[in-house]
């Protein structure tokens, strides 16, 4: 077995195959309407991916996700770094985070829809909120853990306060920040889909629910598989980026992603 597991990519592939086999067998065994066999659902994937309208829907979803995620990066990382370096900033933002963190961001959707309507702005804001907190949290932890003597060495070289934050704290905290980015990426995907389930108009989540209403269960399952594949794609892409950015650091700890 050790030889098999050492082939890169093989164990996850086997796991996927296993799930498909179990799915197929269960579906055939029970013969339920709501559980079409894999052999029926999976062929829908190429259909969906070649359908212009669903592609536009997905593009819309991903665009919102990118905007929400990008905004969160721009705002959360500086706040987190600042919190890690200033007791006052930490004292101010920490209680706020404590209150907001456990609130499911999708639960805010009705309120946000009241303010901003059911369009892009609401959905992007929910994605932004979902991503912001883990990003702030990990940036904060990373910034707080920066060795004091790194900063001293830098200040002896003449780096001032802002330069130290930008050129020492940021790179030193980067491995931890990227842990937050990775968590945030998954959360962005989750909040993106949930927001579209609540404010149904367009997007990946909308396709899922419209198909559900129409009783097109094979499409529902196919979409769930597509969302899962998107998640894997993001994750793999992110790992490549991470290795390029922080290859100098020791390997990161494994990441558990909470739900949103």
């Amino acid at each position: 077995m050790t030889r098999l597991t050492s082939i890169p990519g093989l164990p996850p592939l086997l796991a996927c195959l296993g799930i498909l086999v179990v799915w197929e067998l269960l579906a055939r065994w029970y013969g339920l309407n709501g559980l079409p066999p894999a052999s029926q659902a999976l062929p829908q994937i190429p259909h969906i991916l070649s359908d212009k309208e669903s592609l536009i829907d997905m593009g819309e979803s991903l665009r919102r996700m990118a905007i929400g995620y990008g905004l969160a990066l721009l705002i959360a990382v500086p706040i987190g770094l600042w919190m890690g370096r200033s007791r006052y900033a930490a004292a101010f933002f920490n209680p706020l985070m404590m209150v907001i963190y456990p609130v499911p961001k999708a639960a805010l959707m009705p309120i946000i829809m009241l303010w901003l309507g059911v369009g892009d702005a609401s959905k992007t804001l929910v994605i932004f909120l979902g991503v912001t907190l883990p990003l702030i949290y990990h940036s904060y932890q990373g910034s707080r853990a920066v060795e004091e003597k790194l900063l001293w060495s830098a200040s002896a070289m003449g780096l001032g306060g802002f330069a130290r934050l930008w050129r020492v704290v940021l790179p030193a905290a980067l491995p931890e920040i990227l842990v937050g980015c990775k968590t945030g990426l998954v959360l962005a995907l989750i909040t993106m889909v949930t927001s579209e389930m609540i404010a149904r108009q367009a997007g990946i989540g909308n396709i899922v629910f419209v198909s559900l209403d129409l009783g097109a269960y094979d499409t529902v399952y196919a979409m769930i598989v597509i969302i899962g594949m998107l998640g894997i794609l993001f994750d793999v892409g992110f790992e490549v980026l991470r290795r390029r950015l922080v290859g100098w650091a020791d390997s990161p700890h494994t990441i558990m992603v909470g739900s949103a």
Binding site: E147, K149, L150, W152, S153, S155, A156, M157, G158, V168, P171, A172, L174, V246, W248, A249
Partner: peptide, 20 residues
């Protein structure tokens, strides 16, 4: 009044910039 390049520290912890 503060650190300056006239006084260069060397620490037990090395304090090298790990990303450089």
């Amino acid at each position: 009044r503060g650190p300056g390049p006239d006084r260069g520290p060397v620490f037990q912890e090395f304090a090298l910039f790990p990303w450089k």
